[in-house]
Structure formats: C-alpha cells, structure tokens
Design a protein around this nucleic acid. Structure first.
Length: 572
RNA sequence: GCGGCUGUAGCUCAGCGGAUUAGAGCAUCGGUCUACGGAACCGAGGGUCGGGGGUUCGAAUCCCUCCAGCCGCACCA
C-alpha cells in the first residue's frame, strides 16, 4: 500500500508542477499540523515572487479532497492536516495488511553487507560490537523490505601474525591450544604468542619461516592454520548466538578467500594503465588524495616485498561482490578511521570500471565506544573489554532488576528473560545514537527500564500484549471504522501509519537510530493513549477500534524491535 | 601541515534550510492512582545550539574563519 507521505507528496507535486514544473514541495512532518510543505518559500525566491502569493496559487491547484485540509500559514507554509476519513481509510488498510504497510521491494535488489569482521585467534571486543550490531540491523531492514541480503563477514584470517600463532599452537600442543581457543580464551592465546615472539629470537625465526610456508601452501602448515580458523569461527558463532545476531558461518569470507584473486587484481590494474611503481611498491594514485606533504597519496596494492596489501584484498572483494554476487548495493560497516582507505578503494574500483555508477557503495562508518571517562572503553587494567563480558554484566544487572521487582517463575525462565533484556539494552544503546558519533557506554543507563532504552520499548510491548491477552481474542477483528475521537487515539493512529516511512528513512541513510527514534515515539504515543483511553471497558464500537489500535501497536513494536535485532517478550 | 568526524540543557542524546517558548531521555522539583502491568503518565525549572563573520525575508541547519577533542595521512588490517 502507498504510505501517507507518498500520497501527500504526489498530490503536492502535481500542484507545484502546475506552477513550476519539477519544484520540490519540501514536505516535512510538522509540529503545527500533520505535515507542512515549505517548498513555496524557496520557489518564491527563484521566481522572484512574493512567497504567500505563490503559496496561494499552489493551494488553488492543490487537490487533497478526501485526504487532508490545507491551511496557508506564516510566510507561505502549507499546513496539512489529515482528514478523519482519510485516517480511517488508511488505518483500516493497515489493519488488514500483514506487512504493516511496508511494500515489498520491486525489483528485488541484491544488498551485500560487510560487517562484524573479527580476527582469528583474537578476542571479540567492544570494537566489534558496533559493526556487528549495526550491520545486523541493516541486514534485517533490507530483508524486511524483501531485498536479497548477502552478509559478508570479512574475518581477519591471514597475514604475518599467523606465523607466530601457528608456532605457538605447535609449542602448546594442538589439543591444549585448540581447547583454549574453543572456550574463547583467545586473548591469552594471542598474548602468549606475542610474548614469545617478542622475547625469543628463535621463535621469531620460526614464525617468519612459517609465514612463508603458509603462503606457499605447505599442507601441514595449512592444516594447522585451518585448525586455528575453525576453532575461532566456532567461538564467533557462539558469540553471535548469544548476541542474537543473524550471521552464520556460511557468511564468512575471510581475507584469505581472496588470495587467489590478488595477482589478477594487480595484473588487471596494470593492464588498465593505472599501476605506478613507487619505491618498488605497486600503487594506484586516485585523484583527489594527498599525503602530509601534499603529494599524491597512493593506494598500495602490492608491497615492495611482493606481498599484497589489504587494498588488494578489498579490491578483489569489490570485484567479487559486483560481478559474482551481482550486488546492487554494498554497505561496509566499518569504523570511521578507515574512511580514507575505503574512499580510495572505491575510487580505484570506479577508475578500473569494477564498480559501475549504478551500484551504490557506501562506507557505513561509526564512532568509538567510550568509557565513563570519555576515553576508549578499556578494562580497569587497561586491556580491551571482551564483548562477552559486557553481555554477561548486562545480564547480571537485568536479572538483579527482575529479582528486585519480584519476578515470578523459575530461575531458568527468569534468566532467559534477563538475557533478552540485556541484549535489548546493549543493542538499543548502540543503535539509538547517530552512528558517526562516539558514544558513552553506560550499562546503568542502558539496562534501565525508564527512558529511551531497549527495555522500556520491551515493556511497552508487554503492556499492549497484556491488554490483548485479556481481551481473549487470538485475532483482532478489524473495526468497520476508526473514529479516533480522542486526541490520544488520533496521535497513536498517526504514529502507526508512519512505520513504513520510518523504515524508508532508515534504509536511505543507513542510520538505525531513525528506527529507534520512531519506535520510542510510537511507544510514547501508546502509553499516552493507554493513560487516556480505556480499552477493555470501553463501550462498543469504540472497544473494537481501540483493540485494533492495540493490535497494530503490538505488531509494529514487535516488528520494529525485531528489525533492530531485539526480542519482544510477552511478559517481563 | 592536509583531510575526515565531533562540539546543542547538569549528564546522555535528537534536530529533516524555516514560523512566538531549539526538542527528548536521565537527574532535580511539583503533581496524577479504584479501568487494561505505577517498570507508567502530566507539569515546572534548566540552553549566548564551541566563538566570530557571511549568504538569506529566515541559519543549530548552508558558506568562510578561528578554537577544542578524536581519528587518518606509503608497504599492519
């Protein structure tokens, strides 16, 4: 079904086109009405006319019969107030739509989302939290609209550290070593390897030789490497499961999976005449990038020693995703520090013709997670914070809160609920800020049930569900009409109709915090309605109408939370 | 030095070129209760939107400049 804003936009466009073809009506949500169209003001300047007169003229061409009332206000704003009949019609359509007004993508597009990207034999820490949580939310958003989503987990599984890691595995004994990795004690494993490397010249020598053997494809070395990778992947899968993240092991395409393509990337760049030899390194100099001395900045695809840089891997991945996967959109959910790197990689890919203009390719950058001191989040001893420790801490706090509030039921189900709340707390806190900013990690606030938090949204959902449970009906009959006589009813109805637009805004900007903001305002609209309007005790036909509003609210909240990767429990 | 990101209420954050009082949440203070979960709701106080210029009828929003913080700037990913 068409969304409310689409219907309005189309009608307004028609009117504006009559006055100035192609002029943007500048339709926006309004605090003074349901929507406002500000386009007349900008247009007035372009045409050298008086804004109010122009707005008046547009108004005369505007046909909103059966949709809304328009009022000319201020300097030339068009205030749009949706009519009761129109709201009724749209809500009845919404109530009968299993998709809650979200149109399936047509045509279906292929969206490749690169996210999470932990390193083999290294702990998953807070640095991976944002990529994992944001990427997974974006993947869910795309799936919801019906696009074909291909998740790519660009795991760090290659490079010089693996010589050292494999030698350490040998020293430790395969069984002991892999056991340590399997239980997720990756920090110790990596640090011990590092310590040996730093302390022992013989170990260093072996490590270097091991890297050579690995790259040469020595079978025994590859077997040991595979062991490291497999153990780590098993651990990652566990973390994803506990976090409620949809990444599967099939989504993993480690850096190593592009090894066979790297020589081809270099050769093709060379054939295209883009390759420049600089101090022995083979580089591409995309225009518009300068180093600290103002010289052109290279993207190094092949190092002086013949090894390939990560730029080569990223270029190979771009090519693979465009040509083999057929990507229409590619999102890279990677931290902000890599902005320049990605912008160079994309620029080179475009130069080489591997990235057609029609393919949207975007670095979905995000800021750091900070501690209470506003510095990068670290443990008290200064180490990195394990992702899983963060989750455990949140679970403990959520569980404690449940106990304090006298949660009933057995310990196992309470614990399960605490885990749902903890996931909601952590994910919502991460997703609800504009992603480019750094944000302060404060468990106390995140787990709180008050305010703009994940648990508050879950709670709002349980309250709606409670009403529906008491009503006893498994399916709520759509009313013959939504009267919406109470202001709180009307506000809730309006909020429900906005869901597809909120989703669209989230997609266009790759900003999950828009979805969070929408859900929070929906929850607030519901609680205001809840305070003002009795549902079960209301006389018919109001009761049926209000029950339908409750049903839509419950479905929208649950759907919205699910799209953020957050569960919506029935009770809490 | 060049480039990027950030700077909005005591704290954490929204804010789409617009309309008297720049919004939320938390915290503070004051209210609301026999409906359906008070883990709620309503209200109040609290802001030179980092500073200064400029464009505009109109700027937190666009442009310039300065300040502060973080990050990047050739063979680690």
């Amino acid at each position: 079904m068409e969304t409310v804003s689409e219907i309005l936009a189309a009608r307004l466009q028609t009117a504006f086109d009559r006055v100035a073809p192609g002029a943007d009506p500048v339709l926006r949500p309004s605090e003074r009405a349901d929507f406002q169209a500000n386009g007349a003001l900008a247009l007035a300047r372009a045409l050298g006319r008086a804004p109010r007169d122009l707005a008046q003229e547009i108004c005369a061409h505007l046909d909103l019969a059966g949709v809304a009332e328009v009022e000319l206000a201020g300097a030339g704003f068009l205030n749009v107030t949706l009519s009761a009949g129109f709201l009724d019609e749209r809500l009845r359509a919404l109530a009968g739509d299993a998709r809650l007004g979200v149109r399936p993508a047509d045509p279906v597009r292929t969206v490749v989302i690169d996210y999470s990207a932990p390193n083999v034999a290294k702990e998953m820490h807070v640095g991976h939290l944002r990529s994992t949580v944001i990427g997974d939310a974006l993947a869910r958003v795309e799936r919801l609209v019906g696009n074909r989503v291909i998740a790519r987990n660009h795991v760090g599984d290659w490079g010089t550290p693996f010589g050292m890691l494999i030698e350490h595995l040998i020293d430790q004994g395969e069984d002991a070593g892999s056991a340590e990795l399997a239980v997720g004690d990756l920090t110790a494993f990596y640090q011990d390897a590092r310590a040996a490397f730093d302390a022992d010249e013989a170990f260093r020598e072996r490590s270097r030789a091991r890297v050579v053997a690995l790259q040469a494809g020595d079978p025994e070395t590859r077997r040991l490497w595979r062991l490291l990778v497999d153990q780590s992947v098993a651990y990652f899968s566990e973390v994803y499961a506990r976090l409620g993240v949809t990444l599967r092991s099939e989504d993993i395409r480690g850096e190593s999976s592009y090894n066979d393509d790297l020589a081809g990337v270099v050769a093709d760049l060379d054939a295209l005449g883009l390759l420049v030899d600089s101090d022995g390194a083979r580089c591409v100099f995309p225009p518009g990038f300068a180093n600290r001395d103002g010289e052109p900045l290279p993207l190094i695809v092949q190092k002086r020693d013949g090894g390939f840089g990560y730029a080569a891997t990223d270029l190979a991945a771009v090519r693979d995703r465009v040509t083999r996967l057929g990507a229409d959109t590619m999102l890279y959910v990677v931290g902000t520090p890599q902005a320049q790197h990605f912008s160079m990689v994309f620029a080179v890919a475009r130069l080489a013709g591997w990235l057609p203009d029609a393919v949207r390719c975007e670095h979905v950058a995000f800021g750091n997670v900070l501690g209470a001191d506003h510095k990068m989040l670290k443990t008290r001893s200064g180490g990195t914070v394990k992702l899983i420790d963060l989750l455990d801490e949140a679970i403990a706090r959520a569980d404690q809160a449940l106990v304090e509030r006298g949660a009933t039921g057995d310990e196992a189900s309470r614990r399960a609920l605490a885990e749902q709340i903890a996931r909601a707390a952590i994910k919502y806190a991460d997703l609800s800020t504009e992603r480019q900013r750094d944000y302060v990690f404060d468990l106390e606030r995140m787990v709180a049930f008050e305010g703009d938090t994940g648990p508050y949204l879950q709670y709002a959902h349980t309250r709606v569900r409670s009403i529906l449970r008491r009503a006893g009906a498994t399916t709520v009959a759509p009313p013959a009409r939504f009267a919406l006589d109470e202001p709180a009813e009307r506000a809730l109805g309006r909020a429900l109709l906005d869901w597809p637009d909120a989703l669209a805004a989230t997609r266009a900007s790759a900003q999950p915090h828009r979805l969070c903001g929408y859900l929070f305002s929906l929850a607030q609209a519901f609680t205001a309605f809840y305070e003002a309007c009795a549902v079960l005790g209301a006389p018919e036909p109001v009761r049926t109408q209000r029950l339908a509003l409750c049903d839509l609210t419950a479905r929208t909240l649950a759907q919205g939370l699910d799209t953020l990767g957050i569960e919506a429990p029935e009770r809490m």
